[in-house]
Design a protein around this nucleic acid. Structure first.
Lengths: 156, 156
DNA sequence: TCATATGTATCATTAAGAGTTACGTGATTC
DNA sequence: GAATCACGTAACTCTTAATGATACATATGA
């Protein structure tokens, strides 16, 4: 597909879980982000491995936040979803015996690596709590009485 | 496919054209970068529109550099190949009515836009001539007598 | 006039993310 | 202790964008 949506989607989910869901099943989360429960489990499994959420099976089970949003950075979420490749451009993965190509690839790799390091550093400075507060500002400015677009179900 | 190789490939081609090919047909270039002549024409068409190369049909035709490498920046090449999306991550293209998702998307978009601006600025500071000189340093250090891995044909 | 080379439309191939189905396992409820 | 619920995961298919390939038109030079 176009690009990797996992980081964006997981941020969305984490804020909903903190601000109004509490515990949620994969099925509920899937409806929230318009996808399939299996896709949700795949992504959430990465968050669990990083200690961001916990999961429980059986009746009353589901997913739950394991720490406050203020202690989760965008970098944490990026790593949790498997640190997908950041860039859509760059040289071919396998190197060539052509010295010109080697020089081009080295320059591009160096430039992209530097940009990647800067972007990841930036991700480290932003907490999910900050983004949640962005949302609350938007809500306050919207003048609506219900802070969420209810995703599929109205019971909570 | 994995990622967009056009910028890397065109840099490779430009340096070869400047340093030892002079004029080259799409077929020769295709062999150089291990692809098809039509793919080459597609990419080179963008360079021509930006005034980086010229093309001529018929006998003795082909592609030729239109300006010195010192006057072509990596940014120019990036734009010439159609400024493909830089990032492989990010929010979904279409926006949602969910305020949480909007906040997440806005934050990610802002962060990525900033990173994109920085990377493009960096591309602007690097000329293709500099990369060609990188190559010449590599050649000098390699101790080889022939500066190129000859791509497919040995006649020139 | 014919061979050469670009210009371009159209389709096939490929790789990676995303979506889906099926089935297993553990936990809770009755 | 059987049924139900929910996660865990393997093994697919689907979709998208880049790339590769084929066919044919057009322009140029010998």
């Amino acid at each position: 597909m176009a690009r990797d949506l996992r980081m964006s989607r997981m941020l969305h989910v984490l804020i909903h879980m903190d601000r109004h869901l509490g515990r949620a099943t994969s099925e509920q989360i899937a409806q929230m982000i318009s996808t399939n429960a299996v896709v949700v489990r795949r992504m959430m499994a990465g968050l669990r491995e990083r200690g961001i959420v916990t999961s429980e099976k059986g009746h009353g089970g589901g997913w739950q936040l394991a720490c406050p949003l203020a202690r989760i950075s965008l970098r944490d979420v990026y790593e949790a979803v498997g640190h997908p490749p950041l860039f859509n451009i760059g040289p071919q993965a396998d190197s060539s015996s052509c010295l010109v190509e080697q020089a081009v690839d080295a320059r591009l790799d160096a430039t992209l690596s530097e940009a990647e390091a800067r972007l990841l550093a930036q991700f480290s400075t932003i907490t999910v709590e900050e983004v949640a507060q962005d949302f609350e500002r938007r809500f306050a400015e919207s003048g609506h009485s219900v802070p969420f677009q209810w995703h599929g179900s109205t019971d909570e």
